[in-house]
Design a protein around this nucleic acid. Sequence first.
DNA 1: GTGGTTACGTGACCTACATCACATTTGAGG
DNA 2: CCTCAAATGTGATGTAGGTCACGTAACCAC
Lengths: 192, 192
Amino acid sequence: MEAKEILKSHIAKIVSLTDEQFDYFFSHFKKGSFKKGQAIISANDLVDCEYFVVSGCLKSFYINDDLKMFILQFAMPTWWASDYNALYNHTKATIDVDCITDAEVLCLTNDDREKLCKEIHNVEHFFRWRTNKGFVAAQKRLLSFMNNNVKYRYEEFLNLYPEVYNIVPKNLIAAYLGVSRETLSRLYHPEK
Amino acid sequence: MEAKEILKSHIAKIVSLTDEQFDYFFSHFKKGSFKKGQAIISANDLVDCEYFVVSGCLKSFYINDDLKMFILQFAMPTWWASDYNALYNHTKATIDVDCITDAEVLCLTNDDREKLCKEIHNVEHFFRWRTNKGFVAAQKRLLSFMNNNVKYRYEEFLNLYPEVYNIVPKNLIAAYLGVSRETLSRLYHPEK
DNA sequence: GTGGTTACGTGACCTACATCACATTTGAGG
DNA sequence: CCTCAAATGTGATGTAGGTCACGTAACCAC
């Protein structure tokens, strides 16, 4: 399936756009192809786009002063990624986005999104819906963080994102769970 | 200032509504008054409203099987609160919302919000903006959780929400930070 | 007032997870 | 098919923060 079709059916699940509306909407996206390991956003960049994943897998992550990595989000096909804090507030990136596998994405600038939201009411509805989802997911993850130990969170992750689990190395899953890779390893290889 | 004025100036910071539009918008809200300690949403309730705080302070929180409390959010005047997961997905509440102090709120049902978002484009814009803010804040908190120790997070909280810090007892702040009240106490009373 | 609930302080001890160190396996690229 | 880097396993040891226990102080409600 083409990038355009993938985006179209993704949007259609939430709002109805006429073909003309969708074509107009789509005309604001720019295709991008990236290789495994390649950076899409780097800390201190100016961020002006968000990225819709057509194929492959991205991660968005923060690197702290000790060079420890924390993964905010994985992004599989039909998911969106960016440094939303930087994007919305026109500040420099504090997080990185890069490719876990080769990936194709569709880029949409912040300005174009805002323009489209103004011009097409249903587009604004779509983006509101999407953020609502993201907000609820983030709150759930926060609660799980406070409430559950690593083992539970690991299994929860496995159930929630089996398709990610199958692609992503365990050290990255550890970085998503906020735990050391050693501890994660010991979880499913109980010593002795 | 009246509830209506407070809501009006809160909205006006983000979008412009005509007076007629705002009056119509406002006509969908129902006033509510609650006493300190009173529950607004209880786990297993059906949730059909979200709440705009006019005065006082609310908390939304989860109680786990060991009866330990985790605070998702405080809500001061002009902030919004609900069990958004339950509200958006029409499921039963898994979190509670109650009053830390006497409080006045404006209630808006989910159906009315959706109706208003459809009818008035700018209203949809406002709610998209609001959730964007919430999403970014939740992601920041998540990162801080993974990256920083309790002491740092406590000070961060203090800087971010000084007005909450002055109202709310420390055991609730501990529940927000996801830490035991004993540990929090030892932080600023370093034992000799 | 007084009694009782809620907030807060602090010591002793426990535990989940981090860190460091090193060995082993895997897999992608030449 | 080889090589080298990345991913993974595992032991020893350290530590932030939890839990339990108990005591004091502050604040209602009556």
